[in-house]
Computed example of a mutant assay.
Amino acid sequence: MMKKLLITLSVLACFMSCKEAPKTNSTDANDKIDIEVDSTKIDVVEETPVKKTTQQIKEELTSKGFKVFDYVDEKTQDTILMQQYFMAFLKRGPIRNQNEEEAALIQEGHLAHLGKMYELGYADISGPFGDDGDIRGITIYNVPTLKMADSLAKSDPAVKAGRIEVEIHPWYAAKGFPLR
């Protein structure tokens, strides 16, 4: 008798575990998507980013050492959070007598450095100017201190080679506003 009860419970448990759960509308921060691959149904959970309040962003930035302030937009009455960044002006350096091959290698290292700064989250935007002036381009560093921005900028192979120099200034921009 006990043996039959255990077998019945095992079969029932197996049946219940194989039964597909009913679909419900999720109110969580995650959305579930069904994808079929080679006739096999796969559930993929996509996380919806949790939107932080301005106050949470401000606290997070100040805890990391960033300087911030906010102001109220007169038109919209929205509170705008301003964050300090550091704008590095990349200027023509004193040593520009490299041959074409050396200059190309330095430029390759320079571009790799800027790409790495972006990937690591230290620089938000970089680019050259369209004229042939002494100021060759800019990089905007998203770091808490001038010392850190200066150190990162001076680790650029083009700066080390003397091909460019950097001049860095603190600069404020509205946090989270995209370029247009």
Rank of each mutant, 00 (worst) to 15 (best):
16 M>Y: 12
63 S>G: 02
84 Q>E: 14
27 T>I: 02
142 N>V: 11
106 I>G: 04
110 H>G: 05
17 S>L: 08
43 D>V: 11
66 F>R: 01
12 L>D: 07
111 L>Y: 06
79 T>P: 01
94 P>S: 15
18 C>W: 14
31 D>I: 13
15 F>G: 13
7 I>F: 13
99 N>A: 00
61 L>P: 06
113 H>I: 03
67 K>P: 01
79 T>V: 03
73 D>W: 02
88 A>F: 00
17 S>F: 12
96 R>P: 03
43 D>K: 09
79 T>N: 02
103 A>H: 03
35 I>P: 00
34 D>A: 13
58 K>V: 08
25 N>Y: 11
91 K>Y: 05
52 K>H: 03
68 V>M: 06
57 I>F: 05
102 E>L: 05
105 L>F: 05
58 K>Q: 12
27 T>D: 01
122 Y>M: 12
45 V>G: 05
137 G>V: 09
8 T>I: 13
21 A>N: 12
119 E>Y: 11
67 K>A: 01
121 G>H: 11
133 G>K: 06
128 P>F: 10
59 E>L: 08
43 D>W: 00
16 M>S: 07
105 L>K: 15
112 A>F: 04
52 K>G: 00
96 R>H: 09
55 Q>N: 13
9 L>W: 05
41 K>W: 02
55 Q>C: 00
85 Y>L: 12
74 E>H: 11
128 P>A: 15
7 I>A: 11
89 F>K: 15
137 G>S: 05
79 T>F: 00
20 E>P: 14
97 N>H: 12
15 F>H: 03
34 D>T: 13
149 A>E: 07
34 D>I: 14
115 G>K: 15
22 P>D: 11
78 D>M: 12
114 L>V: 08
83 Q>W: 02
86 F>S: 07
115 G>W: 10
83 Q>R: 10
88 A>V: 07
9 L>M: 10
123 A>C: 06
74 E>Q: 14
148 M>C: 03
21 A>D: 12
22 P>T: 09
99 N>L: 03
72 V>K: 08
118 Y>I: 14
16 M>H: 01
127 G>L: 06
33 I>K: 05
13 A>G: 04
115 G>E: 15
77 Q>V: 08
63 S>T: 00
67 K>S: 02
104 A>M: 06
17 S>W: 11
130 G>T: 04
20 E>N: 08
139 T>G: 09
97 N>W: 06
93 G>R: 05
61 L>G: 07
104 A>G: 03
27 T>L: 03
48 T>L: 10
9 L>S: 08
114 L>H: 07
88 A>Q: 12
78 D>Q: 15
91 K>I: 07
49 P>I: 07
112 A>Y: 04
108 E>N: 12
73 D>A: 12
10 S>Y: 06
102 E>R: 05
140 I>K: 04
77 Q>M: 10
148 M>F: 01
38 D>Q: 11
46 E>Q: 10
37 V>N: 07
24 T>A: 04
101 E>V: 10
90 L>Q: 12
138 I>T: 08
16 M>P: 00
28 D>F: 03
77 Q>F: 13
31 D>K: 13
95 I>R: 15
124 D>R: 14
88 A>P: 05
84 Q>I: 05
78 D>H: 14
12 L>W: 11
124 D>F: 10
48 T>S: 11
39 S>T: 04
10 S>G: 12
91 K>W: 04
118 Y>P: 01
52 K>W: 02
109 G>R: 13
147 K>P: 03
